[in-house]
Computed example of a mutant assay.
Amino acid sequence: MSEPRDWLEWDERHARAWIDVPQPVDDKYSRGVLGVRTGSRQYPGAAVLGVEAAARTGVGMVRYLGPRRASNLVLQRRPEVVTVPGRVEAWLLGSGMDAAARDDGTATALVEALAAGLPTVCDAGVLDLIAHATGPTVVTPHFRELAGLLSRPGKPVTAAQIAVSPGEWAGRAATELGVTVLLKGATTFVASPGGVRLRVTGAPAWLATAGSGDVLAGILGALLATHSATIDTDADALVALAATAALVHALAAGRASNGGPITALDVAGAVPATIAALLAPAPGGRRAATTV
């Protein structure tokens, strides 16, 4: 696989500046509220995994709005989650949804969230609706999903084509779709419409397991909610936060695995310790702060 040389390797040194640390004056609202519309009757577990990951990444409140069964499972796992509409700073949409099986009520709710102008993570079952997005948007496809997004009548794109040069395709998609693209894979490529190109490596192969993408989406949603004000003023914040989410995801997987098999919930459970290690002072007692 050959990729352009202008991809910046995103590592702990870069990512630690993009973790929001609460101050004594903060409350649950100032720390950010993440709105979540994920899960379905077919895949209710995706809602649990995304909410679990978001809560463990560090957000003031998660507001889950989804199917009854998924909502019940979320509350059983995380009773602090709020399940009524209200204020949010960012949205996480689409994990565990199948666009082909989506009912009209769900589609309307997703379009309303996309049109709210807020920072938004678009995953899985909402990718076909990204034309309705009016705020800063990150899409999180795997190769097959990206192929579907880029295919046009008479001009199909295949997952096999993308696998040959995923970074090139991620950059092309960001430019064509006008959104930040986080292309999942053994190496994660993150590209912005403005031309920023970041990549994250080092995730253990054990991370290729059901639900791991839902955990990644939850981590990213929390980071967008805690940095919503920064995203409004910094054009490059979105791509940096997406790469940071991918790095936290990879590091948490390595911590949970320790060389052995893991489940998606194991990865979510390792996020707090991973973030604590990321924020620990560097040798000499200083923390480096870097930008894109």
Rank of each mutant, 00 (worst) to 15 (best):
Q42G: 00
R286K: 14
A115T: 07
P204T: 12
V21E: 06
A99N: 01
A173R: 02
L150I: 06
P79H: 08
G218I: 10
A250E: 01
G202Y: 04
W169D: 11
Q161A: 14
V239P: 15
V267N: 06
T274R: 00
R287P: 01
I19S: 03
G285I: 02
P24Y: 01
V267C: 04
E112L: 03
I231R: 06
N72F: 08
V181S: 03
L118C: 06
A101I: 00
W18L: 05
D214E: 11
A90M: 05
S2Y: 08
Y29T: 13
L182Q: 02
A17V: 03
A237I: 03
A47I: 07
G259H: 07
D236H: 12
T201I: 06
Q161Y: 06
F143P: 15
L127G: 09
S192Y: 01
G171C: 12
L92C: 01
A100R: 07
D128H: 01
G260A: 15
A256Q: 05
I275N: 15
V200N: 12
P22V: 02
P141D: 04
R37L: 14
R255L: 13
A46C: 12
P85V: 01
D27C: 14
V81L: 05
V84R: 07
A246C: 10
F189Y: 13
G86M: 03
A163P: 09
A268V: 02
D128W: 04
I231W: 03
A289N: 15
L182T: 02
R286Y: 12
R199K: 14
S95M: 07
G96Q: 09
A124G: 01
A250K: 00
D27A: 12
G269W: 04
Y29I: 11
G269P: 04
C122V: 05
S192A: 12
A55L: 13
L34S: 01
V181M: 09
G285K: 07
E3G: 08
